[in-house]
Structure formats: C-alpha cells, structure tokens
C-alpha cells in the first residue's frame, strides 16, 4: 500500500442536450426571465479595434446543419489582452454566446478582431477566437479556434497551427476574409473535419 494522493476527480461531462437554450440563452428558448442575459455582448461599447462579423454553419457528419448548437467565444481585445490578465476597455468581457438561427443553422458573431497574444515559450500566437461547442449529441464540449484568413504571415508562424501535423487540416481553423466580414464553417465530422483540441 502507498499513501493516498487525495485528489478529487473532475465531474464527468454530460451533453448539454437539446434544450441548452433554456439555461444559457432563455430568450432563444422563447421566454424572458432574466433582467439581462449573459453573453449577448462580447465587446461592450468602448472596445478599440476593428468591428467584425463572423458568419458560418456547424455541420454534422451527414452534412446537415447543427441547429441546436451553442457556441461560446473567448477572445483577447484588439491589443491582445485577455480580461483578467491585464487592462482592457471598460465593459470588454471578451466572452459571448452564439446561437444559430433555428431554421437555417447559420450563426453570426459580432465582435472586434483580437490582437496577437503571447503564447508559450515566448512565441506569438496569431489573432484568434477560442470557441467551445456544446449541443445534443456532444458528450464533452469541443474546443477549437478560429484564425483570420487575412493574417497569412501570422498564421504561418502560429505555434498552435504549427502543431497540426497534416498541413491541409490547418485550413479548417482559418476563416475566409472579406473586408470586415469573415466566414467560418465548423464540421464536427467528415471531410474536411475541423481540428478540435484537448486543452
């Protein structure tokens, strides 16, 4: 016998289910209950930087849109600072919730373009949004990142994109740029399947 380490075990994840909106976005479930729903505004009114809109669709292994997905976004501000890790603009939360249109499955994120963030070992990470997806049929929330198609040089030097062994799969994390609008589809399964991370 040896001594016990006395660590607790992380509570096991369970699917958010089809009615996740009731808890995390009740307005989308069809009723108002809270004075203010959380996650509706990522940036607040004072955020510096370029205002951008990201649209896209999450699709399943059959190619059908996942209309009941809920996506959480976590990002740095335009200066590359995460709230809590340094000074950010008053009201900048850096976090939000995104729910696709129930009929079409198309989601829309309105935010500011984040700046580059210092990564591990002093290597700069290209601007990116951190995304976390939950839905019916997803047993553990899926982590991924969205990079920006108009940051080719920064993306080429990004240490996380560089970890993806199959170079062609890196493109699954890069949004198509069209001025201040970006398009980013997420494919849960099948070709080209989005790269997801074990963080």
């Amino acid at each position: 016998m040896v001594q016990s380490l006395h660590y607790l075990k992380e509570s096991a994840s369970q699917t958010a289910g089809p009615y996740v909106h009731i808890g995390l976005a009740p307005g989308d479930a069809g009723f108002d209950i809270y004075r203010r729903e959380l996650g509706r505004d990522i940036t607040g009114p004072n955020a510096q930087g370029t205002r951008i809109t990201v649209t896209g669709t999450v699709t399943d292994g059959t190619g059908a849109p996942v209309k009941d997905v809920l996506i959480e976004v976590w990002q740095a501000n335009a200066a590359g600072v995460y709230p809590g890790a340094g000074e950010v603009e008053e009201g900048f939360r850096g976090w939000g919730r995104v729910i696709p249109d129930f009929d079409t499955g198309v989601f829309e994120v309105k935010t500011v373009k984040p700046g580059a963030v210092m990564g591990r070992n002093g290597r700069l990470m290209a601007p990116h949004l951190n995304l976390w997806l939950v839905a019916r049929g997803i047993n553990v929330g899926l982590n991924t990142r969205m990079y920006f198609g108009d940051e080719a040089a920064a993306n080429a030097a990004d240490p996380v994109l560089g970890l993806i062994e199959q170079a062609h799969r890196r493109q699954t994390l890069v949004a198509l740029a069209d001025g201040n609008r970006y398009h980013f589809d997420i494919r849960l399964q099948g070709d080209p399947e989005t790269v997801f991370f074990d963080v």
Partner: peptide, 19 residues
C-alpha cells in the same frame, strides 16, 4: 445523436496558453 456529431479524428493535445 452522438454518432454523427462526434469527430472521427483524434483531438489535438494542446498545452495551456493564455487562451
């Protein structure tokens, strides 16, 4: 429902950064 909503590729292990 997990059948068509589960990635087929392995998750890519990522050491923690600020993100």
């Amino acid at each position: 429902t997990s059948v068509a909503r589960s990635p087929r590729n392995a998750l890519l292990s990522l050491q923690g950064s600020m993100s």
